[in-house]
């Protein structure tokens, strides 16, 4: 009797243990082991700080949402062509351009260009598979949903969720440098799209949001600084530093008010009159637009 209980327990534990280990990470470990061993460099940032900074970077979807909301017209010439995916051969270039394509995907989705997203989904899937994270991208499901523009909300939810899973997986496998590049690429493309649209849209809201990127760029530069011992990062960091220099001259003013709360239909709604104001000139905006375009052009070719 005692033995059968033991066997039962062992079987149960084994079952639970196997379910705990699901996630398909073995291939990644094997394929990237050599790469990691030769290229891993000591990074001068704690894992906790890195995770906190990475998580704080806003989704490029927010910028696309603002563009749509402001009435700006969709521009099909500004995204990175999906065919360019074949040009990216190193893990780092693949990761950076997964981020760039993710922002493009968000922009296309926001404007309901569901059919056009198919090529971008294919490119992302291909690049993600190239760095062994393709299993987190539900390409078939997204492709099915993309055939109907009514499914945009689902597409955006699933693709955002997929990107979050890729990011979490890379960080858990100590390949945070690839996460850093994906997030940097997404931010850079969001910045590029918004600055290009701002040239013709003449929207105060869009321009203000571009100025607010000072906060995010500050966080991003702390992360990139920690990785600049990697050759690829060193070049990227140097380029991004040019953008940061422009942003350093932009000021943000804050006005604080004590928040209040009220219950509305069972939900707690915060009423807060605190405000921020961006002090950015047209010349600064022009410099940001040109510098962003130059950096982006250097890394998508």
């Amino acid at each position: 009797m005692k033995t059968s209980i033991k066997f039962g327990l062992i079987a149960t534990i084994a079952l639970f243990a196997s379910s705990c280990n699901s996630g398909g990470g073995d291939d990644f470990d094997k394929k990237s082991a050599a790469d990691t061993a030769t290229k891993k460099i000591q990074v001068q940032i704690s894992e906790e700080t890195l995770n906190s900074l990475l998580e704080s970077i806003p989704s490029p979807m927010e910028m696309s949402s603002l563009l749509k909301e402001s009435g700006a017209q969709f521009d099909n010439t500004i995204t990175n062509p999906a065919e360019n995916a074949d040009k990216y051969t190193s893990s780092y270039a693949k990761a950076l351009n997964i981020g760039i394509y993710s922002a493009d995907l968000g922009y296309l989705n926001m404007y309901g260009k569901s059919f056009a997203t198919l090529n971008y989904l294919g490119s992302i899937k291909s690049l993600a598979s190239g760095i062994q994270i393709g299993q987190f991208f539900d390409f078939e499901m997204l492709k099915k949903l993309a055939t109907n523009s009514k499914n945009i909300d689902s597409i955006m939810y699933i693709s955002t969720n997929n990107f979050n899973k890729m990011d979490a997986y890379l960080r858990s496998k100590k390949r945070a440098e690839l996460s850093v590049l994906i997030i940097s690429g997404a931010w850079l493309e969001g910045e590029f799209i918004s600055t290009q649209i701002a040239k013709t849209a003449k929207s105060d809201k869009i321009e203000e949001r571009i100025g607010e990127q000072k906060i995010t760029l500050d966080n991003l530069m702390v992360i990139l600084d920690a990785y600049k011992s990697y050759d690829y990062f060193n070049k990227f960091y140097a380029e991004m530093q040019k953008l940061k220099t422009i942003y350093d001259s932009i000021k943000i003013e804050y006005e604080y008010h004590e928040p209040e709360t009220k219950e509305v239909n069972g939900q707690l709604v915060i009423v807060n009159e605190s405000k921020s104001k961006i002090m950015m000139t047209k010349e600064q905006l022009k410099a940001i637009t040109e510098t962003t375009a130059a950096i982006r052009a250097a890394f998508i070719k």
Binding site: S56, E212, I215, N219, I252, Y254, E255, E263, V264, G266, Q267, L268, V269, I270, V271, N272, E273, S274, K275, S276, I278
Partner: peptide
Amino acid sequence: NYNKKTKKFYPSLAYPCGATGV
């Protein structure tokens, strides 16, 4: 989402943001 005085839990919070920041 938890009001210590009334001991009430709310299932959601909504924050209309007026000041950009972390």
